[in-house]
Design a binder for these strands. Structure first.
Lengths: 344, 344
DNA sequence: CTGAAAGCGCTTACAG
DNA sequence: CTGAAAGCGCTTACAG
């Protein structure tokens, strides 16, 4: 009468030693079965598997990690104030996508938020101490000290969006921001709009810079004279969009279209337009960016540029895993798509 | 000329052994300093601290965990389809609050999502294998097999909301749903409304059951005859709220108020009311529940019942940590608050 | 293909 | 207060 499979006293989980004894092999053989079954005879293989089932054995990750030096987990690092990210639906989509993509590899995701200087220091130490094998970095702004530290420490890293000023030494995955912006502005032009305002993203972010560049290019190509008063900087927040639209309206009352660099800001812009008595899209056509949940949360539903979030997150995971496996950094640029709804 | 502090080859991080040598003490003494400094002379203490600084030593958590049997990390477990949680702003608030509360204890949070049967099995194994010291469980529905398994496996656990049918064996933290519902319905009555419809939460959740109970109690207390046609079940989703409101409107066209069991559903209800040409609050007063970001995302801003999310998350963490420390399970019920805005 | 053995980096009684 | 030693549960050359 063995003690295995006993219900009450689960204090001591079975170890590789228990499995070995049960299977009548050495611990080395059990370990080999656990790690892919190479150089193991079918008979031993089978005996070990049976023993694992019988004992309910599950590997102790700490012991394994101690020797392999790997944690088999990945960090999802946010280096901005929490409010910002949680307000932004893009964040959710990304987090969800990465969690999913990692789950397919049986790799747990550690969520790390480093909003303050203090937290950044702690988390940086935590990461460099080897608690995760790599980091998915989500931070819109440039000059991020954490990114730099991690890169220097040799921690596998992939950013969402091109990190400004990091050269090509860090991997990233991004949508084609400029091309997306071009599509949207072209669409607004095709609607007959000519006084097209823009609320940009933060101009120290690649998305901010590129989407503005796309806007400028298309207007220039169409022979429309540049008017800097039509451009107002934003911060990707709903309130920022509202304030930006109000400002533009006061500058250019007969504005007939608005390209807003994120759906969340576009929602805010809708509020401002509504308050000012403008009909959307009749008086002012509004184009957003992201195709985030925010695009369809309000009314009218936003015409927007879809970022391929599913692919962005799965590519981030793929590139990170490759890098953990020893590959060099790489960049991936994904195409966007115009999604027509009610607002333009 | 020592090799410490060398920049290039950071392949081998310093171990406790390096620190001991540097400080001229034994590894045991270094460990004692690391673990609180008890039974260590001030001189040794100082020498070790200096050596730690000099070598840049940081403890290897895997080695520590292997011997202590603790991981010093906590899981945040979602046992529902991801979409559901990510759609719901409450989830964000809770995740953020817990991350924050744990960060104060220097404890990282592992985000785990078990939407499918498959994922549940894998994550259950993962947890019982000791990769986290305890679990913050977020799952609205009852009969959750994971909760049961974890409880049986003796994993410290605290749920958000009272788990139905788990007796008092599992810790939980919840807002006073019934009392909150009573406040809202009383408020609607005080506005002179008498034909008050309700869109409930899922009735296999404590929130669903309790908020409905509060609604019934207040109407009964006010001597208003119960009319079951005024009650329609919901699922906490925006679409569910929209469908529910449409259904109520078709049943009771002269409805003059609506109590909706979540802000997100209330947003959906607003859409349905608007489409039906009802003005809010003039024709139909609408009361939500949660005071989530959804309450102020649309127009009009929702009058709602605030759940004290900050306290809920900090209490969840406190109770979990206590339980990890050996305390028995406990339940915490937190008060809610009526927040008046535009919709009622 | 397989076993015996060393060792990953730490903590913790055990003697002093 | 402190050192020497055992041991946590695993993986991985090393010989066979």
């Amino acid at each position: 009468m063995t003690m295995s499979h006993q219900t009450g006293g689960r204090r001591k989980p079975p170890t590789i030693h228990d499995v070995a004894r049960e299977a009548g092999v050495s611990r080395g053989t059990v370990s080999r079965v656990l790690n892919g079954g190479h150089y193991v005879s079918p008979a031993a293989q089978e005996a070990v598997n049976a023993a694992i089932r019988k004992t309910g054995y599950v590997v102790n990750r700490h012991a394994r990690s101690l020797i392999t030096g790997r944690s088999d987990s990945v960090g999802f690092l946010l280096t901005e104030p929490q409010e910002k990210f949680f307000e932004d639906p893009n964040f959710n989509v990304l987090l969800r996508g990465c969690t999913q993509a990692l789950a397919a590899h049986d790799i747990p995701l550690l969520l790390m938020i480093a909003g303050t200087e203090d937290e950044r220091r702690r988390i940086s130490r935590y990461i460099t101490a080897g608690h995760v094998d790599g980091v998915l970095l989500v931070s819109s702004h440039s000059g991020d000290p954490v990114a730099e530290q991690l890169r220097e420490a040799g921690v596998p890293l992939v950013a969402c969006g091109k990190p400004i000023g990091q050269g090509s030494k860090v991997s990233y995955v991004a949508a084609d921001d400029r091309d997306g912006a071009r599509d949207m502005v072209s669409h607004l032009l095709s609607l007959g709009r000519r006084r097209i305002g823009m609320i940009t993203g933060p101009l120290d972010t690649p998305g901010g810079v590129e989407r503005l560049a796309g806007y400028r290019e298309v207007l220039a190509d169409a022979g429309i004279e540049a008017d800097e008063r039509l451009i107002v900087p934003g911060d990707y927040s709903r309130d920022g969009g509202e304030a930006g639209a109000a400002e533009l309206l006061s500058r250019i009352p007969d504005l007939d279209a608005l390209f807003v660099a994120s759906d969340l800001m576009a929602q805010g812009a809708l509020t401002a337009l509504q308050r000012a008595g403008r009909r959307v899209p009749e008086d002012v056509a509004v184009g957003g960016f992201d195709d985030s949940p925010a695009a369809t949360a309000g009314s009218p539903a936003l015409t927007t540029i879809r970022q391929p979030w599913d692919r962005i997150s799965s590519e981030m995971v793929r590139v990170l895993l490759a890098q953990i496996g020893g590959e060099d950094p790489s960049a991936v640029i994904l195409p966007t798509e115009l999604v027509k709804r009610e607002s333009a």
